[in-house]
Computed example of a mutant assay.
Amino acid sequence: MFKNSSLIIAALLGAAVYSATGQTKGGSTVKSVVDSKKTKFISKPLVTSIYTADPSAHVFNGKIYIYPSHDIDAGIPENDNGDHFAMRDFHVLSMDRVGGKVTVNPVALTVKDIPWAGRQLWAPDAAYEKGTYYLYFPVKDKSDVFRIGVASSKSPTGPFKAEPQPIKSSFSIDPAVFKDTDGSYYMYFGGIWGGQLQRWATRRYEAEGSKTDLGKPDEPALTAKVVKLSKNMKEFSEAPRNVVILDAAGKPLLTKDHDHRFFEGSWMFKNNGKYYFTYSTGDTHMLCYATGTSPYGPFTYKGVILNPVQGWTTHHSIVQIKGKWYLFYHDTELSGKTWLRNVKVTPLTIHPDGTIETVDEFVK
Rank of each mutant, 00 (worst) to 15 (best):
H58K: 09
D83Y: 14
E235I: 12
L222E: 10
D141H: 06
A74Q: 00
P220H: 14
D331L: 04
T181M: 11
K38T: 06
E78I: 12
V304T: 12
W116V: 08
P164D: 06
Q196A: 05
S43Y: 12
L135K: 04
H316C: 00
M268R: 06
R203N: 09
D213I: 14
A16K: 07
V359A: 06
L46W: 02
K337A: 14
Y133C: 05
T314M: 11
V343E: 13
G75P: 01
Y51E: 11
M1A: 15
I167H: 06
V227P: 00
E78K: 06
A290T: 03
Y186V: 15
T278L: 10
I321P: 09
K112A: 07
S169G: 12
Y67H: 01
W193G: 11
G100T: 01
A16H: 14
K154L: 10
D182A: 00
D73N: 08
F85M: 15
T314L: 04
P138V: 02
D141K: 10
I66E: 00
W200M: 04
A53D: 04
L340W: 09
T29G: 13
S266E: 05
L7K: 13
Y185L: 01
S335C: 14
M233C: 08
Y276D: 02
S237V: 15
V17A: 08
P240F: 01
P115G: 09
S56C: 10
M286W: 08
T332R: 06
V345P: 08
G62W: 04
R199Y: 13
V244Y: 11
P308G: 03
W339N: 05
I42M: 07
K63F: 13
V59R: 15
K168A: 12
H91G: 13
S94E: 11
A221V: 08
K31A: 09
R341I: 03
D141G: 11
T332C: 15
N272R: 11
Y279W: 07
E238R: 08
S230Y: 13
A162P: 03
S6E: 07
Q196N: 07
T281K: 11
P175A: 02
M233L: 07
D259Y: 04
T314R: 06
A117G: 11
V227Q: 02
W325H: 11
H330N: 10
N232Y: 04
M95R: 06
F299N: 00
L7G: 12
R261P: 10
A249L: 09
K140Q: 15
K140M: 15
G62Y: 03
F160D: 04
T103D: 05
L287G: 03
Y18Q: 06
M233V: 00
M268T: 13
N105H: 14
K270P: 15
D144L: 08
K211S: 11
G297T: 15
F41A: 13
T314Y: 07
V359T: 08
G354T: 15
V150L: 04
I72Y: 06
D80Y: 11
G62R: 00
T157N: 10
H285K: 13
Q320W: 02
S170Y: 01
T21H: 08
T291A: 03
E129N: 02
A176I: 09
V17F: 06
G195W: 05
D283G: 05
